[in-house]
Amino acid sequence: MTTDTAPDTSAPKPEGWRLRARLRALYHGSSQTAVRFRLGVLIIDLIIVGFFIAAPLLKEGGLVFYVIDYVIAAILALDLAARALCYSDIKDWLKKPIVWMDLFILATLLFPAWLFNLGFLRVLRLWTLVNSDFFWRTIGRRYDDTRIEDQVKALTALVTFIFVATGFVYTSFVGTYEGISGYIDALYFTVTSLTTTGYGDILLPGNWGRIVSIVIMLTGVTLFVRLGQTLLRPHKVRFPCDRCGLQVHDPDAVHCKACGNLLCIPDEGHH
C-alpha cells in the first residue's frame, strides 16, 4: 500500500529575502528592538550633521579629516543601501527627492577634494532627516501630524538655511575678500543679514555680494515668518473631513467649516 505525500512547501527562503525582511522589520517595525535600532541610527545621523556643520573648521586637520569623511561616507552608503532594500521596488524609492539629496551628499563625501566647495550642502541632511517618515515614526510618533511637528520642521528649515548660507558665504568669499577671514565671520554675516540687523561692518563686495545678501535677507525673513506662524497661530488638529477633504479643524469643532459635514474628532486626552 502506497500513500501520496504532499509536496514540501516549506523550502528555506533565499538569504536575500531574509535580509530584506529583517531590514523591513528594523526600519519599519514597531517592536522595541526596531525602535531602539532607529534611535541609534538617528543619534548617529545627528552626530554626522554636527560634523557637517563643523567641517569648514575641521578641514585643517588634514588626513584625520579625510579619514572621518570616508568613514561617514561608508555609514551613509550602508544606510541608503539598507533603506533601498526595504522597498519592494527600488524605482519608487529613487523617485523620492530626499533620496536624491542624500545621494548627492554621499557624492560630496566620496569625492571631498573635488566637491568640497559644494560641501556646505551636506547640512541639508538635517532637513531631510527631520522631514522623513523615519524620524517621526521613531522619535515623534505621538507628535506626528500635530502642531509640534510643524514647529519642529519650521525651526529645522531656519537652522538648516542659516548653516547652508553660512557655508556658501564662507566658500565663496573666504580668501578673496578680507571681510570674511573665517567661518565665524561668515556665520556672523549670515545672521545679521537674515535678521535685517545690518550693522554694516561686513559687506560682501560687488554686485554678486549684493545679490547674495538680498537672497539671504528675503529667505531668512520668510523662514522667520513661517516659524512665527507655527508658534503663534491657534491650535488645530489634523482630521480630514470625509466629505470635502479639509485637513485641519479646531479641536472642538463639531461641523466642518468648509462644507458643514458632521465631524467626530477624537479627544486627544482619550485613546
Rank of each mutant, 00 (worst) to 15 (best):
M1T: 10
T2R: 14
T3Y: 08
T3N: 14
T5R: 15
P7A: 15
P12Q: 02
K13F: 10
P14F: 12
E15S: 14
G16T: 14
G16M: 13
A21R: 11
A21D: 14
R22L: 11
L26F: 02
Y27L: 11
H28Y: 13
G29D: 09
A34I: 03
F37A: 03
V41C: 02
V41D: 00
I43H: 01
I44W: 10
V49E: 09
G50E: 05
G50A: 15
F51E: 07
F51Y: 15
F52V: 05
I53H: 10
A54F: 11
A55P: 04
A55F: 01
L57S: 13
K59M: 08
E60L: 07
F65N: 03
V67D: 01
A73I: 07
A74G: 11
I75A: 12
L80T: 06
A81E: 02
R83V: 04
A84V: 07
A84E: 05
D89T: 04
K96S: 13
D102W: 00
L110C: 10
F111P: 04
F111N: 00
F116K: 05
L124S: 12
L124V: 10
L126M: 14
V130P: 13
V130H: 14
D133R: 15
R137Y: 07
R137G: 13
G140Q: 11
R142T: 13
I148F: 15
V152Q: 08
K153T: 07
K153Y: 00
A157N: 08
L158E: 06
F161P: 05
I162P: 01
I162T: 08
T171E: 14
T171A: 15
V174H: 14
V174K: 14
G179H: 11
S181Y: 11
G182F: 08
I184P: 01
D185E: 04
L187S: 04
Y188P: 00
F189R: 02
T190R: 07
T197E: 04
G200M: 01
D201V: 10
G206Y: 03
N207P: 00
R210Q: 10
I214V: 12
M217N: 03
M217C: 08
T219Q: 08
L223A: 07
L227P: 01
T230C: 05
T230M: 10
L231A: 07
P234H: 05
P234F: 07
H235L: 14
C241Q: 06
R243H: 10
V248K: 10
P251V: 02
P251D: 09
D252G: 02
A253K: 03
V254K: 15
C256D: 01
K257G: 00
A258H: 05
G260T: 01
G260S: 00
L262E: 12
I265C: 05
P266F: 01
D267S: 09
E268D: 06
